[in-house]
Design a protein around this nucleic acid. Structure first.
Lengths: 355, 355
DNA sequence: CAGTGTCATGACATCCATGACATGACACTG
DNA sequence: CAGTGTCATGTCATGGATGTCATGACACTG
């Protein structure tokens, strides 16, 4: 690999002049510039980032750690991969600011995190992004607290800047969209207990009802999520049967996420209940492989991973560029769009349909 | 950030001794070693990778480019993200060899690839991984042909080492599993034309039939994939209706991928056909969010992204460690497992069931 | 034309870690 | 005890790019 000296020799100038031509930090005569450009092309010269960053202390590097950052669940949850979207959009945004992105995966083990951080430190990363595979609260504070960092899809109690999905707002908007179609009896199949998303989405659901003046009916809320466990399908089937056994059954069903919606579609069809004619169904996440493939296509609230990745990169960039994290909005919630598709229509005329 | 000099001063030794203590490339007295270790901990010293790699020309860096590498389809295909698994497993394998992974996404534009490569070159990566989001042939040869690289999920005509899914073998095994249950009439809903996977899976299907002595019936093969286009559902419904209108309808249906299987489940249920009692259904990809969520759970052939990422990293490591790419098996095909789940059972006793 | 400013460029030190080489302190051999 | 080997450590130069300072060549001002 040629060095700046090789280029200098070939162009008949000093290395420093080549440096100037490349970085444009001082005037270089047109003729000289061209000679240098030619030499660079001839030699396939690419400046060494290592040498460069040794002098400038600015490395232009950012590290990203994916995987379970918390010690809570150290198993790689099936199907719960943090969407590549976060990585992609963060990388793309960082690139705009001339930063390169390193990634490392903790493989689900929080013990490995300090080691990964060390590795990043060795590369003198300017900042770091921690990405959890699922909205969660970090239990152990992250080591190396002096490094500038932004949490994505997770938060801690130390006030580290974090970018989170607005589960509550998303669910609120979604339920509002359901209400807007005229539904009054809206069931809710909730996610597993203990997840922040579970509580937040529930609150969004309730708030939307309240705002619309629709009474909250606890009979319309049942748990359905066993994280893919075998018994899950039965649980959902039971829940749906209970709903439809009610004196006033629901005309719309909110599923905690799109995955649950798949199961709901299956059960309803097996019961001879047609979506959306008999009952509307909505999900959450906009997991497009599901939401666009189900028939009818699923109405759902987007889990805005793309926007989150981008925003996290943006915040990190701001922090790196000097603006100390503005204390006011340390935690930023990103609200996803409501994507209305075929599975949501007005309730059937005869609302008291009993199956 | 402290330097090796700071550590040396604090431990009362020369920088070189610190270096030796860290790298273990020469004997260091026990007492000295401890003093150094203490100083390192006190100062939170982490050796600078930049300075280190300047001397040794070994950077320990590997770059990965994801996204559409070919110029063929420059739109970010919905739902067609290369699974994060490839990235994760590759990174994890590289880490074992002490390599760090840089990633960059072409964002679907092949024009951006040279620029990304330049960026990697600046970091003096030792090798690169190109990951396509979908099994494909690269049309433009990659620039910088001197860099050591491995292609993942794609291949070119230059004999660049590549790691591919064994679509043919996977489909073969899957169909064999179906045949083993006693099915003779096995329909096949194919993927979009022109994809390597489409042809290969078809060949696997045919070979398995041939080996079992089951005649290939063109009436049992219909296209079903419009890449998520709106008309897809209808196409699939029509195809299924045609199948069941045959004098001897299929007792099992192979779907080109798991996504199609979702649609098939929907249509069949709407027709009152029960899976797997009336007909068995199998997919391809083992997209677990789908295959484990559908009811009944989907039998499918794994698209071995995890193994591919790991294997690619392994091959790259081998190449980097000197072993010139063994000319014989430049292209490696990884076969995924067949995952038998509830959707596959023996055919119904009365095979001539007509719906 | 001397004096001053601007422009283009070069010389040199420097960033941090390490390879090559050297050295002081011992221990051992004959 | 001179000679040799081993061990632990130090000195110095180096890698590639760049910040700092210096300088030669002009152009312009009065």
């Amino acid at each position: 690999m040629p060095t700046i000296y090789d280029v200098a020799k070939r162009a008949g100038v000093s290395p420093k002049t080549v440096s100037r031509a490349i970085n444009g930090d001082a005037p270089v005569a047109e003729a000289t510039r061209e000679a240098i450009a030619l030499a660079i092309r001839d030699l396939d010269y690419v400046p060494s980032h290592a040498a460069r960053s040794m002098r400038s202390t600015k490395t232009g590097l950012v590290g990203m750690i994916t995987g379970a950052v918390s010690g809570a669940s150290d198993a790689s949850a099936p199907g719960g991969l943090p969407d590549l979207l976060i990585v992609q959009t963060a990388q793309s945004r960082l690139e705009q600011s001339g930063k390169a992105l390193f990634i490392a995966d903790s493989g689900g083990s929080s013990q490995r995190v300090p080691e990964l951080i060390m590795r990043f430190q060795a590369h003198r990363v300017e900042g770091m992004l921690f990405v959890a595979e699922q909205h969660k609260r970090l239990v152990d504070p992250l080591p190396w607290s002096d490094t500038k960092k932004v949490l994505v899809n997770c938060f801690d109690d130390e006030g580290t800047p974090a970018v989170l999905p607005d589960d509550e707002g998303g669910q609120f908007d979604l339920v509002e969209a359901v209400l807007a179609k005229g539904h009054k009896r809206i069931a809710f199949l909730t996610l597993a207990d203990g997840l922040p998303a579970t509580q937040l989405r529930m609150r969004g659901y309730q708030n939307a009802l309240t705002k619309a003046g629709v009474a909250f009916d606890p009979d319309l809320v049942l748990p359905a999520d066993l994280m893919g466990d075998a018994a899950e399908h039965e649980l959902i089937a039971d829940a749906l049967d209970k709903f439809f056994a009610l004196p006033s059954p629901p005309t719309a069903i909110c599923c905690g996420n799109d995955r649950l919606a798949v199961a709901v579609y299956g059960v309803l069809r097996a019961r001879g209940i047609t979506i959306p004619d008999d009952v509307s169904v909505v999900g959450f996440d906009d997991y497009r492989v599901i939401s666009e493939t189900l028939y009818p296509k699923l109405t759902t609230a987007e889990l805005p991973y793309a926007a989150m990745g981008q925003r996290a990169a943006e915040i990190l960039t701001e922090i790196l560029e000097g603006a100390e994290a503005p204390a006011e909005k340390i935690t930023e919630r990103i609200k996803g769009r409501v994507v209305v598709r075929e599975s949501l229509v007005p309730p059937p005329a005869n609302t008291s349909t009993n199956h």
